[in-house]
């Protein structure tokens, strides 16, 4: 091992810490984005024309806002959002500071995915629930989120995997994590084994997310 990856072996501790940082950034931004994304996704579905709480104004404003946020390339968002990051976290560098751009980078994407997942819920079932006297809140929690659960988990897996990708980009502005190690150490010092090792760990994380996600989908789906 020392012969193939001399530089990696020399900084084992840094690798372990970087892996934790990546997991930390992914998890924290995933949790906040999940809440925001679900809220916005549900809002889009219920206020859309023909929805259970149809509201043309809310729908068009939220819809356009989501499109706008999704149009900004992440690498530019990282820079543009830094005043807000400074205001919220007090600094623009470091792992915690990177959560702000990560959340803004991913939740609009997740909201759109959630919206699509919920649109797949059979309209007939929604109508049946309305005919049984269900309130809009009951329809959201007992029908939309429950009937759409398997699809929501599927889009969550896709989103978490994208999010892991974004954390590595955040590494470019000094967030720490595996992206930081790969670029600022491996790439900058021409220590290719470090870049390679960072990639391997990221691949393992991605596969783990995919496997766990698929397992959960199998548990909740009853087609």
């Amino acid at each position: 091992m020392n012969a193939i990856m001399p530089n990696v072996m020399a900084m084992k501790g840094e690798f372990i810490q970087a892996t934790w940082e990546t997991i930390y950034m992914t998890l924290m931004s995933a949790i906040v984005s999940a809440v925001l994304g679900l809220l916005v996704g549900v809002l889009l579905v219920v206020t859309q024309p023909g929805g259970i709480l149809e509201d043309k104004l809310t729908y068009s404003v939220v819809d356009k806002l989501v499109n706008l946020l999704r149009s900004i390339p992440f690498i530019i968002l990282l820079a543009v959002i830094s005043p807000l990051t400074k205001f919220l976290v007090g600094t623009t560098v470091g792992t915690t500071a990177s959560l702000v751009p990560l959340i803004f980078g991913i939740f609009p994407f997740y909201a759109r995915q959630v919206q699509n997942a919920l649109l797949d819920v059979d309209h007939g079932v929604i109508e049946a629930a309305e005919s049984m006297g269900s309130s809009p809140m009951a329809i959201i929690f007992r029908i939309y989120l429950r009937e759409g659960l398997a699809d929501i988990i599927r889009v969550s897996i896709v989103t978490i995997i994208s999010l892991i990708g974004l954390t590595t980009m955040a590494g470019a502005i000094g967030s720490g994590g595996l992206g930081d190690v790969a670029i600022n150490i491996g790439y900058a010092r021409f220590e290719n084994d470090i870049t390679f090792m960072a990639m391997i760990i990221i691949l393992i994380l991605v596969f783990a997310v995919q496997l766990i996600g698929d397992w959960i989908v199998r548990r909740v789906e009853h087609n």
């Binding site: 007939g124 005919s131 429950r146 009937e147 909740v220």
Partner: peptide, 22 residues
């Protein structure tokens, strides 16, 4: 009140409209 009234008027459908997650 309408939701309360709807509970007294049930409906069945051509495509059953059952919840597949339950």
């Amino acid at each position: 009140e309408l939701r309360q009234a709807r509970k007294k008027v049930s409906m069945i459908f051509q495509h059953f409209n059952l919840m597949k997650s339950r």
